[in-house]
Nucleic acid binder design. Structure first.
Lengths: 342, 342
DNA sequence: CGTCTTTATGTACGCGCGTACATTTTCTCA
DNA sequence: TGAGAAAATGTACGCGCGTACATAAAGACG
């Protein structure tokens, strides 16, 4: 390579990285030679020399539990991260959270130089996870959580306005004339479950309604857990006229469950889900939902991380906390007219 | 590290890789020292020294087009690949097919040592793609296609019995008494589209039915393309009593389209989709579908690739071609009784 | 106990880049 | 045209492992 272009290895390196100054003619000579030999520098050696992996890790939940989350959630976020990473010339390393040893795992990903930055998806509050994240922060690593907030920790986060989204959804139901609104929430280990609950309560309160504790149900974000709640809801159907679910999958599971119990199509309670995943418009009636801009959240997480990485000379301690707005998508399931008469 | 354990660097390396012979006492001394110092060898240096990246690349379609495929498809396959890779100690590098320059891209991934093996998803027959794959084969690379077959090329492939699945689905419809079965297929660039078409034709033929060319429609696997076909189907509704779609998303789009046109719920034609994605049981009526074992396909692809990688000393030229069975999942949409009366 | 074999450990070097520094070439302006 | 500055290129070395080979320690056996 260096021979063919009649220059030193160093010059080759400079040309290919566009570093330092060089004569245009030399530059061309090197580029031509590279083309002739179909030469490309070894990413491995380059990464080793610079001690940068050139890739950004994305932590996904422990594999068997991946299905607890909607595939929509991951695919949107991953696409967002992927599109931004590509612009920065980084690759995506997919990492599944190990069953044990999370504590060392996160930290060692950096220590062994497997990743230059980390994006954590599906994180939930538990002592070990928290400690692992704190350690990353102490070590000055570049990492970011998506769709999860840890209070007072100062982690970098990209989140959405779950409380507000929830508030608007419930308000919409109230404005449609519903008063007895059941709420099926996800696990409290997720900050957005807690926020959605808060939004639900605030909406009721602001409109002079009481929270009926017996109308609060708990699922795990899976469709089946929504399905499992159906009998409980059915038992109180006379005191319920609308349902608000903490995600679409539970909403749909619940809808199916109620229908299987035998509630006729046009007597289903009004219903709103959360996430506005692609399945929301597949059901009959189509499901109103609170849209969360997952794709954009992925983009922002990657962008902030990578741009900080680029000028890593600066003090690393500045973190970012971004909250993107949600948007209520009104469909048939929450409207008095269409959904009921058809 | 070496000092603390009072051994040479070489011994440390041997202990951590469990290579060569060593005294048990020394071994412990090294392990203890490693624990004390929280030492882990740099993956980067190790990869460089062995010139192996330790990760396996997964090619996904050009990003904006990812949504053409069902997220179910990717998430299942990725999970399968991921679970097997983890067992082999490999990581997953997510790679989006570039818009241009595919030809060099694939090959250079190996040349620059970014990946040790490649799994290509969403591949479709086009001259450049084919040439890029041929080049990989010439270079003796370890790679594998999932859910796509190239005739007579001798690529490693993990596929499913699409023809048979299609045959069984159509046969089922015929046995339910349907005779005029429209078929909405995906693009012919995908081998499984062609196979599904073949299965459809064979089933009709075996049961003494003619193929009515005016009942063949074409979509692009997206829900909208199914939706777009609805008016065309509607125009011939008197000559159609059942619909077979080449994937679930088109089936559901079609179903929605027909309903929007005003076909009452209980007069929808019978319908069967393909893939058996999670959305098949979300619709009303629930959608019969041909199940494709994507997760297992991902596992097998990774397993075969990685086990060959392990004993890479052998001649690399042996390829594998695996076909997994599909399974017809019968639900409401294809049954005379339930779906029609309810 | 001495020699030969086996086992355990140390030494030295290369993997293929990036880059600080040394050196050469080219340019500038008197 | 020559000295000094700027631009272009070359030289040398390190990044942190794995590993072939050399060497030392431990066993085997007569």
């Amino acid at each position: 390579m260096a021979n063919l272009a009649k220059v030193s290895e160093a010059t080759v390196s400079r040309v290919l990285n566009n570093v330092g100054s060089m004569k245009e003619e030399t530059r061309q000579r090197v580029i031509d030679a590279a083309k002739v030999l179909n030469y490309a520098p070894s990413a491995l050696a380059r990464n080793f020399a610079t001690s940068k992996s050139g890739s950004i890790g994305v932590i996904l939940p422990y594999l068997p539990k991946v299905n607890m989350f909607s595939t929509y959630f991951f695919s949107e976020i991953l696409s967002g991260i992927g599109s931004m990473s590509r612009e920065f010339g980084y690759d995506l390393l997919l990492l599944f959270r190990p069953m044990d040893d999370v504590l060392n795992y996160y930290s060692q990903l950096f220590h062994t130089h497997k990743v230059d930055a980390l994006i954590v998806l599906g994180s939930k509050e538990d002592p070990i996870e928290l400690e692992a994240l704190r350690r990353l922060k102490e070590e000055g690593r570049h990492f970011c959580l998506i769709n999860q907030h840890y209070d007072g920790e100062g982690f970098s986060e990209v989140d959405a306005t779950h409380e507000k989204g929830s508030y608007e959804a419930v308000t919409h139901l109230i404005q449609q004339g519903y008063k007895d609104i059941a709420f099926i929430n996800g696990p409290d280990e997720y900050s957005n479950s807690r926020e959605r609950s808060a939004g639900y309560r605030r909406a009721l309160h602001d409109h002079g309604l009481e929270v009926n504790e017996s109308l609060l149900f708990r699922g795990n974000f899976g469709r089946k857990s929504g399905h499992a709640v159906a009998p409980l809801v059915y038992a109180r159907l006379n005191e319920v006229d609308a349902l608000f679910a903490s995600n679409d999958r539970m909403a749909i599971g619940l809808q199916q469950g109620l229908r299987e119990i035998g509630i006729p199509w046009n007597q289903l309670p009004a219903m709103i889900g959360f996430d506005d995943s692609d399945i929301a418009e597949l059901t009959t009636p189509s499901l109103s939902s609170v849209k969360v801009p997952f794709f954009h959240m992925g983009e922002l997480a990657a962008e902030n991380l990578l741009s900080r990485l680029r000028q890593s000379s600066l003090g690393l301690q500045d973190h970012f906390q971004i909250q993107l707005p949600t948007e209520l998508m009104i469909r048939e399931s929450s409207l008095r007219t269409e959904s009921k008469e058809e």
